[in-house]
Design a protein around this nucleic acid. Structure first.
Lengths: 154, 154
DNA sequence: GCTTGTGTTGGAGCGCGCTCGAAGCTCTAC
DNA sequence: GTAGAGCTTCGAGCGCGCTCCAACACAAGC
């Protein structure tokens, strides 16, 4: 599986969850059409957040978005990809301050890759711990359901 | 596996995660020693939250705690068990309002068991969705780590 | 008896992540 | 040309879940 296939797979995975990314947006992203651009409403739809939130993320320094002559925001494929990543991390509970830190490293170039790796590994561990927590809560919930005589299936 | 064994197993599972419940507290709970009582500081330690939070939970109507002659809160085994359950649900993202609703049903007696089941099943579905989200974020993170050349193991 | 620690209450404050409002500019449709 | 939708900015507001403060009450140890 090469990198593009991995990316496509990761993006395909992103279709499923509610509040996720729309299919056609992902197709655009996989195609990486450099001429394709989106206004804030469309971008928001594709990313699965509100335009308010997109502006907020820009103010928070998570993305820099260029403007058209009218001063309106213009989102391109890389921006959307970054936003998809960011919202995925947000959904998983990563605070905006951490994302900001990571993004700053990205914007400072390849020399910061080791630092980014540190952050990512740390976050991976957080996610694994979180996974365990959720599984525990799920077990507790299913236990309660079982004791109440409810079916655990499906 | 009878109900007591299931409970013991569920409680054993609770030992592992960080910020979780202490081993001796669980032993007390499994023994269900009716004479054993705890002050707020000890209870907080056992449950893994701050005394502030315990008072807050009481104000929020999640637990009712009796007082000793001095007016100090006295936590018994059932109270602690409820708090362990509540904090587990909180950790998994269940809002306090939902917990309040569930607790109200519990306090209204067996007639509300169907309603409780509804709530639990709903929460189970939420947890499953959440699990998928976390797994997705984990996959994305591990993908990034891999592309940066970091080791995915362990 | 006095100090120190721990508890009590009500209410205020806070950090986070949005979310919205106001006032104004721009594009589109008719 | 004009209405209306949608964009811009800045700043304020909000809901949640704590977290802390002030002022006081009680308990244990010296």
């Amino acid at each position: 599986m090469n990198v593009n296939e991995q990316l496509a797979e990761a993006l395909r995975l992103a279709v499923d969850p509610p509040g996720g990314v729309s299919v056609e947006a992902l197709q655009d992203l996989v195609l990486d059409d450099r001429s394709r651009q989106w206004d804030i409403a469309t971008a928001a739809q594709h990313v699965g957040v509100s335009p308010h939130t997109l502006r907020y993320y820009e103010r928070a320094g998570l993305v820099t978005v260029s403007r058209n002559p009218a001063g309106h925001r213009v989102y391109d494929a890389p921006a959307i990809r970054r936003l998809v990543f960011l919202t995925r991390m947000r959904t998983s509970g990563m605070p905006i301050s951490d994302l900001r830190q990571y993004i700053d490293l990205v914007d400072r170039g390849d020399a910061t890759i080791p630092d980014r790796l540190d952050l990512l590994v740390e976050h991976r561990d957080t996610l694994r711990a979180q996974l365990a927590q959720i599984q525990l809560a799920l077990a507790a919930t299913e236990y309660k359901i079982a004791t109440y005589g409810g079916s655990t299936q499906p």
